[in-house]
């Protein structure tokens, strides 16, 4: 489902980062662990096609996304990858529902309100459907961000430090939700984190140093 091949990347004026090859099969859950500065976020951005590798390739669902043009990779990402960022960002002028509908539309899928509300219901946040995202608590925001990453039924879910801003209770809750939803969609889940609380939950681990 997701594999890398001799992946490397260098920011201008900085030493090259080399990543060991790995392969995740469909439906597997993986952790990418490493300290700050070890290139965790860079790896996630490479996997999502948000950065183009200096060399090597990322193969996602049979497509070498490192070879796609800018526009095509935006389209591919929108349709196949759900991404959750460390801090959740939303379109401030839109409600929770509208944010999710926009995600469907920008990825080129038809608008499906019942799917949006169903998803929010499963994540126990449907009562905030019409709220502005900035009125929600951090935990609620993270749940909406998860809902947004799942709204197009992605084949792969990438999460960047999804729990670092959360307390133990919310951390447990959010992780459980992620695993559960990924399982229901049979999607590959890859969580990038330095959060020790997750180490014992997911056995497939990639260590960066």
């Amino acid at each position: 489902m997701l594999s890398t091949n001799a992946l490397s990347f260098a920011y201008p004026g900085q030493p090259e980062l080399n990543f060991a090859d790995f392969e995740c099969r469909q439906g597997e859950h993986w952790l990418v662990l490493g300290q700050s500065g070890s290139g965790k976020t860079t790896l996630l951005h490479l996997l999502a096609g948000m950065l183009t590798p200096t060399s090597g390739s990322v193969i996602l669902a049979g497509t070498n996304i490192s070879r796609l043009s800018g526009k095509a990779v935006d389209k591919f990402r929108g349709g196949h990858i759900g991404i959750i960022f460390q801090r959740s960002h939303f379109i401030k002028s839109l409600s929770v529902e509208e944010n999710l509908l926009l995600a469907q539309q920008l990825a080129g899928f038809p608008i499906d309100r019942s799917k949006v509300s169903g998803l929010l219901e499963r994540l126990n946040i449907v009562h905030k459907l019409k709220s502005r995202p900035d009125r929600l608590s951090v935990g609620e925001q993270q749940r909406v961000a998860i809902a947004r990453s799942l709204v197009n039924t992605p084949k792969i879910i990438l999460a960047d430090e999804p729990t670092s801003a959360l307390d133990d209770l919310n951390c447990e809750y959010v992780t459980q939700l992620l695993e559960q939803q990924a399982m229901e969609m049979n999607a590959t889940l890859l969580i990038v984190t330095h959060d020790g609380r997750l180490r014992n939950r997911i056995s497939n681990q990639i260590h960066l140093n």
Binding site: A48, M50, G70, K71, D74, K75, R77, G78, G79, I83, H89, F90, I91, K92, L102, A103, L106, A107, G108, R148
Partner: peptide, 18 residues
């Protein structure tokens, strides 16, 4: 102020033209 929003829209599949 909306830099994140614009990047986010790209992540969700919007082209630079959009």
């Amino acid at each position: 102020e909306r830099r994140y929003e614009l990047a986010l829209m790209r992540v969700m599949g919007a082209s630079p033209d959009k």
